[in-house]
Amino acid sequence: MYLGKSLDDARACDIASGCVEAGTAGKEAYVLTGYLNIPKVLELALHRGYDAYTGQVVGIDVGDPLQFASYDDLWQAFLKELKYVVDVKIAGNNLIERLYMDSMPVPLLSVITDDCIAKGKDYNAGGARYNTSYIQCVGIATITDSLAALEQQVFEQRRFTMEDIITACDRDFDGDDALLDVLLHHTPKYGNDDDYADAILHDVDRALQMTIAGRSTPKGSKTVVEFLPTTCHVYFGQVMGASPNGRRAHIPLPDGISPEKGADTHGPTAVIKSCAKLEQLKTGGALLNQKFTPSVVACPKGLACLAALVRSYFTMDGHHIQFNVVDRETLLDAQRHPEQYENLIVRVAGYSDYFNNLDKALQDEIINRTEQRFGA
């Protein structure tokens, strides 16, 4: 209903669509318009719009980061870069949407979707009762932890300068072991019910909503924020250098709203409490992956804890949670001996696939997810 559906349509027609999206069946044209790499926006802001991966200036110059006198200066620079990137993204979306409106009608979808016939408009031209365009945001854990590290270590504790961290990131922390240890193990991290980090999560979430949500499109769609990576989090990590949270260069970003791998050290309950601070009712979907070893849920107590975890998360207005129940050694052995694991299925993002079907980068991303357990 927050996204504009009537109470009757929300109750009668809501379905799980695609990976995690909630759609109004037979009454809505909802279109995924591609992905937004949120931590890449910060990377551009810290390099005055220059992208080291392509060797080109692809963003805008939001000021010399070495001259930022406060965290607010950094935050305002990020917001300016974000607006520019989103404006470019939406301009591209609108161009594609006009092509669909003018040249790619879908008569069958139009016949079976409410209000298209009454309006005399094609499904791709705004004929459906509800029209929604999703921008799929990726890497919110990385941007949250990166901003938390910069705020605390540079502007509050002044343990490092902005130049120290940017230079270390540019050389992938080569020779910066002490700095890397602080970033990885001594700064607040999203996924631990840590108010310091989660307050930044809330700020980033609000910024995305203010910059993206409600933007109009040529056919009259309402643009909506969604946190769904499919497999794009792997590619997005590959085209990035190291991040101020200690993430190494070219390593995959976290999937959906899942915490950075290895950062969630306080158990699954802390994870869902952090995730619930995201205003998920305002999104088109927010994917959360968790991983448990089989031994954790092998007994009735473990299964009861898992069920309670799911119910608690939904009570806090969580949108989606899913699980891999497999241990790290099994996955590593499956990499070494794929012929012995032809039927091994894993949860990737919002979907499942055979482990052997995945490329090594995606296999490694799943292997490196935090293995959770319940307290004694």
Rank of each mutant, 00 (worst) to 15 (best):
29 A>H: 15
163 E>L: 08
55 G>K: 04
134 Y>W: 13
74 L>W: 12
82 L>D: 00
157 Q>P: 00
100 Y>V: 05
128 A>F: 07
112 I>R: 09
41 V>H: 01
61 D>E: 13
154 V>S: 06
132 T>K: 10
40 K>T: 00
89 K>I: 01
27 K>M: 09
79 L>H: 05
73 D>K: 12
71 Y>H: 09
60 I>M: 10
89 K>T: 13
117 I>K: 09
83 K>L: 10
107 P>E: 13
164 D>A: 12
60 I>K: 08
164 D>C: 10
105 P>R: 10
143 I>F: 03
60 I>V: 15
77 A>D: 03
90 I>S: 02
139 G>K: 06
27 K>G: 05
90 I>Y: 01
125 A>L: 03
157 Q>A: 13
67 Q>A: 15
141 A>D: 10
164 D>L: 07
93 N>T: 10
162 M>P: 09
31 V>M: 11
66 L>N: 14
79 L>N: 05
39 P>M: 10
55 G>I: 07
145 D>F: 08
25 A>T: 01
38 I>W: 04
118 A>Q: 12
109 L>T: 01
139 G>T: 08
95 L>P: 00
70 S>E: 09
141 A>I: 13
154 V>D: 02
124 N>H: 14
53 Y>A: 08
138 V>C: 05
154 V>F: 06
139 G>P: 06
161 T>S: 15
32 L>G: 03
39 P>V: 13
153 Q>E: 14
136 Q>W: 02
77 A>S: 14
36 L>S: 02
143 I>D: 00
26 G>W: 03
52 A>K: 06
140 I>C: 04
83 K>W: 01
150 L>T: 06
142 T>Q: 14
82 L>Y: 05
42 L>F: 12
29 A>Y: 13
136 Q>S: 15
41 V>K: 00
139 G>V: 07
151 E>A: 01
146 S>C: 08
135 I>V: 15
117 I>F: 14
146 S>A: 14
69 A>P: 02
110 S>M: 11
48 R>Y: 00
152 Q>G: 01
158 R>E: 14
75 W>A: 06
104 M>W: 12
107 P>I: 04
84 Y>M: 04
124 N>S: 04
59 G>K: 07
44 L>W: 08
129 R>L: 14
39 P>H: 12
106 V>K: 15
68 F>C: 10
64 D>L: 12
92 G>R: 09
55 G>N: 07
137 C>K: 02
98 R>C: 01
149 A>P: 03
119 K>T: 11
57 V>T: 15
121 K>H: 11
44 L>P: 03
36 L>G: 00
28 E>H: 08
34 G>L: 10
116 C>D: 03
153 Q>Y: 05
99 L>M: 08
42 L>N: 11
53 Y>P: 01
147 L>D: 03
77 A>Y: 03
116 C>H: 04
123 Y>A: 05
73 D>Y: 06
48 R>G: 04
